[in-house]
Design a protein around this nucleic acid. Structure first.
Length: 437
RNA sequence: GGAGAGGUCGCAUAGUGGCCUAGUGCGCACGCUUGGAAAGCGUGUAAACCUGCAAGGGUUUCAGGGGUUCGAAUCCCCUCCUCUCCGCCA
């Protein structure tokens, strides 16, 4: 959600943002509605005020006087109902339009049409070289019986998989290592709900929009009627949805900000429209595990950007501990989504793809989500008129698996087909050094 | 899944069609009192929106939505949530 006063003050900034983010929206049409609404409201409020005055008088009156006022109020009430219906229609559209409006990206965000406009900012680490013919993670995983994709497909359809034995243990180890990494820095762990209401998806900016068909609806067959029923819940595609919504409709205290939350959860994505894309292996799957960083902080861009660096660094530290080469890219306007105002991706080197693959996504959303979720904080230093402000929110992957297993398995493979367990993960695997011996 | 009871201001409660501009208690803030504190006394105690330079004025909000009515916290319908009992169950 955007600030309407800001929209009215600088409509051109929003028109440019929409254009840069490849959104087709009609801001001028919105202003027509906005005016209509503003004209209707005083009319309705005036009628209601009259009604309130009459309501006090009526019980004191008797006979003709009373009948006359009742008749007058009947007419007023009928008119009022018409105006209210009109306002409701206008306001519904007025609100729906607002949900489609983008936030305005920061000035330093590269303008671009799609991912080809993204800009590499830095790289870290040496790409691995092998003195034998390296295999990809699927071949290695199946030979070691730690990844089973055919059986995943048998049981749950394409893009599903089993991690098995040391494969499952390796994923657990990476999750636990990452959780401990954040815990040591004072982050609060969450094991959040995996299902959430439409409002939470709306509040975090995923609904309404194209993302909607990426999300699974929780439903079931009604035994009596045999028809498919929806439970009006959706499976989260990221714990950002339920962790961020944790404080929905709350007023936080300034001195308890920033809130640093780490959500560890399974994530579910339909991956609609990606048929034929990344079909091989564990890159693009319907279900994965993720430790997500979510921060709610004060509405202060400078401070927020420091936190942005902090959460990106937290993720980098995990990759560095795993000794996985990666690069950071500035995501351009056309690739960042309507809610974000600044975004960087971390891409980790994946030998079998002979390229970097996206493993992390770091986003700064300004007050976009907090407005939709109605999360505010008390600012005692502010003027009394504006003591309650909307928070700013940020989020970044800390680690997501099995995608991260691709570089881990491929980079740590040995000539004999075994996999060396990264040193930092060994304590999480009972000291095990090699998978496949 | 079945039966029942509920959802009112930060919390607890009162409120069965106009006296509700939602009372009372607690909490909180400020003031008086005091050497200081407690107690006591007094005052205040939300959000959103409209209007206005401002002071102010107005509207809405009693879980949410719809209805009846000149008028709804209160009556009717639907949805959500909570609790109790039964059933099932990790």
């Amino acid at each position: 959600m955007i600030d309407l006063n800001d929209l009215r003050a600088r409509p051109d900034a929003y028109k440019k943002a929409a254009k840069d983010k490849n959104l087709t929206i009609d801001i001028d049409a919105f202003f027509v509605l906005d005016e209509k609404r503003k004209a209707l409201i005083p009319r309705i409020e005036e009628a209601r005020a009259k009604q309130n005055v009459a309501s006090k008088k009526i019980p004191q009156l008797e006979g003709e006087e009373k009948a006359a006022l009742l008749a007058e109020m009947k007419t007023l009430s009928d008119d009022l109902k018409k105006s209210e219906a009109e306002l409701k229609a206008v306001e519904t559209e007025w609100k729906n339009m607002q949900f489609t409006f983008p936030s305005v990206p920061l000035d330093n965000v590269p303008v671009g049409k799609d991912e080809s406009g993204n800009v590499e900012v830095m790289t870290w680490g040496e790409k691995p070289t092998f003195d034998f013919e390296p295999k990809d993670h699927v071949e290695l995983g199946e030979a070691l019986d730690i990844i089973d994709i055919p059986r995943g497909a048998k049981v749950s359809g394409a893009r599903n998989y089993y991690l098995k034995g040391d494969g499952a243990r390796l994923q657990k180890a990476i999750m636990n290592f990452t959780i401990d990494h954040l815990h040591a820095k004072g982050w609060t762990m969450f094991s959040p709900p995996l299902m959430a209401t439409y409002e939470c998806f709306m509040g975090t900016g995923f609904f309404p929009g194209a993302d909607e068909n990426q999300i699974y609806v929780v439903g079931g067959k009604d035994e009596k009627t045999g028809t498919l029923e929806s439970d009006n819940l959706h499976l989260i595609g990221t714990s950002e949805v339920t962790v961020c919504s944790y404080h929905k409709d709350e007023i936080l205290k300034q001195d308890e900000l920033p809130k640093r939350y780490a959500g560890h959860s399974a994530c579910f994505r339909r991956e609609a429209g990606t048929y034929g894309k990344d079909t091989k292996g564990l890159y693009r799957v319907h279900q994965f595990e993720k430790v997500e960083q979510v921060v709610l902080c004060e509405a202060n861009e400078e401070e927020s950007l420091k936190i942005f660096e902090e959460i990106r660094k937290n993720a980098e530290e995990v990759l560095q501990a795993l000794k996985l080469p990666y690069r950071i890219i500035d995501v351009c306007t056309g690739d960042m989504g309507k809610s974000k105002i600044y975004m960087q991706d971390i891409e980790t080197w994946m030998p079998s793809r002979d390229s970097y693959g996206e493993t992390h996504s770091c986003s700064y959303l300004g007050d976009f989500q907090a407005r939709r979720l109605n999360i505010r904080y008390d600012d005692p230093s502010a003027d009394s008129g504006q003591a309650k402000k909307f928070c700013h929110t940020l989020n970044n992957t800390c680690v997501a698996s099995p995608r991260i297993l691709i570089p881990v398995i491929e980079q740590y493979q040995n000539a004999d087909g075994t996999i060396t367990v990264p040193e930092v993960l060994r304590p999480y695997m009972g000291g095990q050094e090699i998978i496949g011996q």
